[in-house]
Design a protein around this nucleic acid. Structure first.
Lengths: 209, 209
DNA sequence: AAGTATGTGTTAAATTTATCACAAAAGTAA
DNA sequence: TTACTTTTGTGATAAATTTAACACATACTT
């Protein structure tokens, strides 16, 4: 039953796996060696049944009566999510946000490594940020292809994000994390995710007076 | 039929409204005055029927045959989401991430204004960041109560996030935007949202080879 | 060794969410 | 006016997702 990725697993299920992995790593760091769907569920505020059902799409990782070995489940989830390697990334846009993200260490600690940084502004090109020289966006396709990078982050403004995304896709990028507050069209097969704190805040103020 | 908030509107519906508002503002900036569920749907990659259905929970804002007046729908959505005012915010944690967020101008441009910043580190307290003096976290409750702040952002590490959230709730905070990679428990009635780019990246690498 | 408690993976039921299809309204043009 | 087009708002329907129920396996207790 292991690794039967044939049945087209719902994306919403895949989207929950990283949080399971994150919690397992926290438990491991805290010195735990075993856990259960019940414990994970309590900590993640997800029902135990849902966690078991989600995992069951990918195989059988637990032992009845015992639960899950934390080390083993971490290994399995890292395999499933393909995060048992370091992913190289490109970053486009060195405004304030891009600058901040270039310096953010959280990516490195989780297997994501910025390899090249681009901007369109001639006054920025050639400058250094977070140990990387800022490259001209006209070199984007050449450099990304040469470095064989598949993951990129967009930190340009809303008006330029689609254009940058198109360039990234042409360069062979397969996954885009977009910080610009705009929906981006990508061909099927290209992954895109959004980071938009304003939308999250506005969602919450609905419930305030 | 206007403003019948009796029927308990699904949170997932509320969560889509900010993106509708964002797109409407973009269309307005671009000089448009009218739009339709069809146009919005195309731009947001959401079905026109879903947009109409979502809006219908709150009232009737369009004209059959004509569509929506952009200005009017923006006003209505701002009313619904309570973003037709400036919300004061507190920020807790002045590590690299907190520093970056304190300087991020995007919040100000959308009606969210940082009013006070806290940290636990004595070497940081008293320093200035983004024009605000960093206050001792021991003053958190007093200051937040005095300023009557309802919205806060957490940018401390995972191990301290729950503790900070508890302090914030005790201080009267009602909505929390949490950047720490951990699920936080809050009493019912308190809103919490998460920003977690690592999880988004790991979601996407599932589809990569 | 027997009995109890725990926890899995699976199947079935219930709930939530999204889509469809259409009557009615509003504009346009002959 | 009348015919035609567009687009809304909304019941009805379909799909997706979550929750609950269950049978079996393992571990612990006495």
């Amino acid at each position: 039953m292991q690794n039967m990725q044939n049945k087209q697993i719902p994306d919403i299920v895949v989207g929950r796996l990283p949080s399971y992995l994150q919690m397992l790593k926290r438990l491991k760091t805290a010195g735990e060696t075993n856990t259960s769907s019940k414990e994970l569920g309590l900590k993640l505020e997800i029902s135990a049944a849902q966690i078991r059902k989600d995992l069951s799409h990918f195989g059988e990782f637990g032992k009845q009566g015992t639960g899950y070995s934390i080390n083993y489940l971490i290994e399995c989830l890292e395999d499933i999510l393909h995060v048992n390697k370091v992913w190289d990334m490109a970053l486009v846009g060195v405004g304030f946000l891009g600058h901040a993200i270039a310096n953010f260490q959280g990516f490195n600690h989780h297997g994501f490594q910025i390899k090249c940084i681009f901007d369109v502004d001639p006054s920025k090109i050639g400058q250094f940020v977070a140990g990387h020289i800022i490259l001209d966006i006209s070199e984007l396709e050449k450099v990304i292809r040469k470095l064989n990078i598949q993951v990129a982050m967009i930190t340009v403004d809303a008006d330029n994000a689609q254009d940058v995304a198109d360039k990234l896709v042409r360069a062979g990028i397969k996954s885009i994390l977009n910080y610009a507050p705009v929906i981006i069209k990508v061909p099927s097969g290209i992954q895109i995710q959004y980071i938009n704190p304003i939308i999250k805040l506005q969602h919450m103020t609905y419930y305030l007076k």
